[in-house]
Structures are given as structure tokens and as C-alpha cells.
């Protein structure tokens, strides 16, 4: 018992540390930057939503099916949340799950024809079907607001600003509560995604990537599992979408376009998808690059284009391939012999 407890702590302390740091981020930001800290907090909230998005995309790729419509699935979550909150005053604890369920339904419809294809045709097919959904948003003024989209999406009412954890940026725009809501939901989603990755379903999906013929022979219905993973990934993408819709307060079809999708691909390609940690590294490093290139934002696509090409050409496995090397390096540095 004792042993397994210590194992548990050993495995989870890095994650726990990170969560605690994130939990105190509003206080830290306020201390360092005063009221300006709030804008950094917005970045951090978006970052958390992006982490969930990237992690859900990584889940999608476990069967080897890369899609080009993941941003559309996220947009589905954002739109549903926005519509429910704006027109019907539905509170956040209902909008988020309802949006997720709607997105799962849409994912299912998209996955049905797509599951007939593999590899490249799947990739392109998802692109076209995603565009189809985007045309619907553009075309229907009710409820999607047409090409102007929806604005004035009400923030979730999570109590008075500063209710939680004594932060108060003393502003009507205070987002510290939304930040905490996001943090909780993101941790929840990331834990679920982690468990899913190591579950028997995760193994089945990985084995489909490895050898789908063999999977069929041992009774795994490959088509059904590929549709399932599409829906599950859509579920988590929708969570990210809901969070971003609340943050942005306004959405339109262009928020979920191909350029955004390419940035998502850059995150996971740079980080890698083989392990759970790849997308986290990818989002973190690329968000950093994104912030650092703020002064020359007209060159940003060029910079990211170069990053994407060079990581595909020179480091096809993504940054995650460095993890074992780095840990080994640090272990050697500390002087502990590696036990294999």
C-alpha cells in the first residue's frame, strides 16, 4: 500500500506542481504587473484552452487519421455555447456539456463518410467537410449570425469578480473567475484524455494505427473505432471551443478557418504526437514563439512556416523525441546511474 502510494506521488508530483503554479497565476500576475497582469491572464486562459485542443487533436491522430476539420469541431462547441448563452441565457454548467454533445453529433455525421477513406483522402475529405460546416455558419443568419458571427456573448457568471482566491483586478473586465473555471475544466479534460490514452480503447486505437488488418482479425471493428475516436476528440475540442467563446466574447466563421487549423498542426507537429507530452511541449513552445514575435506580426506566418517545414524535415518525431535524451542528460548530471 505504502509503496503504491509513493509510486503515485512520484508519478504525479510534476503535474501537481504545475497545477499549483497555475492556480496561483492570478496572484503572481497581479503582484508583478498590477492591473496589466489581467491581460497576461487572458493569454494564460487561452493557452489552457489551446492545450486541451491540441491534446484532443493528438487523440484524434492515434489511429493515424489526421484531420483538417478539428478547428471546425472546436468551432461547433464555441457556436453552440455562444448561441445558448446569448439567446437563451443558459448558464455555463449547461452550455458546456450541451455544446459537447452537439459537437459529438456533428462529429459523427462528418466521420461517417470519412471513415470510408484512409490516409491522405481522409485528410482532404475532412478539409472539405469542415468547410461545409463553415459555409453553414456563414449562410445561416439565425442562429449563427452569418459571416459577421455572434458578438456580445455573456461571460459565465462565476460570482463577483475576485470571489475566488482573493484576486481582484478591480475591473469590470476581470477574468480571474473565468480563468479558474478554465483551469478546473482543463485539468479535468487533460486527466480524462490521459486515462483514455492508457485505457484499453487507447490501446485499440494505437493498434489500429499499427495494423488495422490485424485488428479486424481479432474482432476490433476498425470503422466503428475510427468513428468513435472522431467523436471523442470532437467532445474535447468542443470544451476548448466553449472556453474560448466565453473568453473572446465574439466569434465568426473566420475564427475557425484553415489558418488556425495550420497553427494547430504546427503545435502538434513541433511537439510530436507519439506520447502524451508532445502536444503540451508543442503548444507551450509555439505559444512562446507567438508572443515573442508580436513586434513583427506581419512576418509571423513566415516564421511559423519555416518552423513547420524545418521540424517536418529535420525532426519528424517532434520535440518529444528529446524527452528521453534530456532526462538522461539530467540524470547523468546529477550523477545517478540509470537502472534499466
Amino acid at each position: 500500500m505504502l509503496k503504491s502510494n509513493s509510486m503515485f506521488i512520484k508519478r504525479w508530483w510534476p503535474a501537481a506542481t504545475i497545477i499549483i503554479v497555475f492556480a496561483f497565476a492570478p496572484q503572481l500576475f497581479e503582484t508583478f504587473w498590477g492591473r496589466m497582469g489581467m491581460y497576461k491572464l487572458v493569454l494564460l486562459q487561452v493557452f489552457l484552452a489551446n492545450v486541451v485542443l491540441a491534446q484532443s487533436y493528438r487523440l484524434m491522430t492515434t489511429t493515424g487519421d489526421w484531420t483538417l476539420c478539428h478547428y471546425i469541431l472546436m468551432g461547433m462547441g464555441a457556436y453552440t455555447t455562444a448561441i445558448l448563452a446569448k439567446f437563451y441565457g443558459v448558464p455555463f454548467y449547461l452550455t458546456i456539456p450541451v455544446a459537447a454533445i452537439c459537437t459529438v453529433a456533428v462529429s459523427f455525421l462528418i466521420a461517417l463518410p470519412l471513415s470510408r477513406t484512409i490516409g491522405f483522402a481522409f485528410f482532404i475529405g475532412s478539409f472539405a467537410l469542415g468547410e461545409f460546416v463553415r459555409y453553414i455558419w456563414e449562410k445561416l443568419h439565425f442562429p449563427f449570425g452569418g459571416s459577421r458571427g455572434l458578438s456580445n456573448i455573456p461571460r459565465p457568471e462565476l460570482g463577483q469578480s475576485g470571489d475566488w482566491y482573493f484576486v481582484d483586478f478591480s475591473s469590470r473586465m476581470d477574468i480571474s473567475n473565468l480563468y479558474y473555471g478554465t483551469l478546473i475544466l482543463a485539468v479535468f479534460a487533460l486527466v480524462l484524455l490521459y486515462r483514455l490514452d492508457t485505457s484499453r480503447f487507447g490501446n485499440a486505437w494505437k493498434s489500429i494505427y499499427s495494423d488495422s488488418e490485424l485488428c479486424e482479425s481479432i474482432g476490433i471493428n476498425v470503422t466503428r473505432y475510427r468513428i468513435l475516436i472522431f467523436c471523442v476528440a470532437g467532445f474535447f475540442a468542443s470544451l476548448a471551443g466553449s472556453l474560448l467563446a466565453y473568453q473572446w466574447g465574439a466569434i465568426d466563421p473566420d475564427n475557425f478557418g484553415m489558418i488556425e487549423m495550420v497553427y494547430l498542426i504546427i503545435w502538434v507537429v513541433v511537439g510530436g504526437v507519439k506520447t502524451y507530452w508532445g502536444p503540451l511541449i508543442g503548444v507551450a513552445s509555439m505559444s512562446l514563439v507567438f508572443e515573442l514575435t508580436r513586434p513583427f506580426d506581419e512576418f509571423r506566418p513566415l516564421i511559423f512556416g519555416v518552423i513547420l517545414i524545418s521540424s517536418l524535415v529535420f525532426m519528424p518525431g517532434g520535440l518529444e523525441v528529446l524527452i528521453p535524451r534530456t532526462t538522461r542528460f539530467f540524470k547523468n548530471l546529477v550523477g545517478t546511474k540509470e537502472v534499466s
Binding site: 495550420v262 512556416g305 519555416v306 513547420l308 517545414i309
Partner: peptide, 13 residues
């Protein structure tokens, strides 16, 4: 897919 994604970067450039 790698070639395809990399050309997306080339399009940006």
C-alpha cells in the same frame, strides 16, 4: 502527410 503539412508552411511563406 508530412509533405502536405510542410507545404502548408510554404504557403504561409
Amino acid at each position: 502527410l508530412a509533405g502536405f503539412m510542410a507545404t502548408a508552411g510554404a504557403g504561409f511563406i
